[in-house]
Simulated scan of single mutants.
Amino acid sequence: MNQAYFQLPLDKQNNLINDGYKLFAIYPYKKASMIAIANEADISKSLLFYYFKNKKEYYLFLFDTAVDFIDEYKEKSIDKEIKDFFELINKTMERRMQIIHDYPYLYKFITRAYYENFEDIKLEIDEKKRIMLQTKEEEILNIIDYDKFKNPSDVKILLDIVLSVAEGCMRGLEDLDLWKIQGKVNEFKVMMNSLKKYYYKKEYLIKL
């Protein structure tokens, strides 16, 4: 990546990022055209390739930028004092649903990238996903209150279940309005409440 990109005015940097999200959200990696992205950003194709040597480099930059943005959003919106597993999970889901509503192209892009199977990009994305998921799990496992669980040794299995449920709930939500998204959040909370009854000690079984 050419460091000249970072010398651009911030609005032009943002245009290149947001227009990339839009085009790669609409089209899979193989079909997305750098010419179309350049046109959307109102710059020449040669200038786009001056900043990013090829489509792959540009795509991976967009993916990293999206992940960084979501992490920053999380830092601003989550109370670090929360130790309850299910409260933390529900707050995380609410935050993600808000991102889907507020930044639809970003979330469409990262969702499509997450399931990208084109060989030219898949290995790099898979490695980034592995690191991202490992970090996410470690963050949760390191701060929750294990005393509330009937069997603390089950927490890692529970987390895998919850993350799979959350992923299923979020797929295909990019075009929903806030009211429908909130409906999905409520459905998710009902499922979490059911799991809580199974995994938590009786004295901690309060409504989510």
Rank of each mutant, 00 (worst) to 15 (best):
E116N: 12
A4I: 04
I206F: 14
M191A: 12
K83D: 00
A32P: 00
R95G: 15
N117V: 14
E127I: 01
S33F: 03
A36M: 00
K136G: 06
I89W: 00
L173M: 12
R95K: 07
D102W: 01
E174V: 09
L23T: 01
L176M: 15
S153R: 13
D145C: 03
S33M: 02
M132L: 06
I157Y: 06
L208R: 02
K136P: 02
Q13D: 07
L47Q: 03
K83S: 01
Y5S: 04
A66R: 04
S194V: 12
Y105P: 03
E75K: 14
A32I: 01
L60D: 02
K150A: 15
V155R: 04
Y114T: 04
K30L: 05
W179T: 07
L106D: 00
I157Q: 08
A113N: 04
F24L: 06
K30W: 01
R171K: 11
Y200Q: 10
S33A: 07
K56M: 13
Y29F: 15
E124F: 13
K129R: 15
L60T: 01
L173R: 12
V162G: 11
S164Q: 02
E139A: 13
M191I: 06
N117M: 11
G20Q: 14
I70S: 15
Y204N: 09
I78D: 03
L178S: 07
D11V: 15
I100E: 02
Y27E: 02
K189F: 14
A25I: 01
F86S: 05
K201F: 02
D175W: 04
F86Y: 12
G172H: 07
K184H: 11
D102Y: 06
E40L: 13
D120K: 11
R130H: 11
S194R: 07
I157K: 09
N151T: 11
S194A: 15
L133P: 00
E138T: 13
K31H: 09
F85K: 01
Y107R: 10
I206E: 01
I110R: 08
D147M: 12
K80N: 13
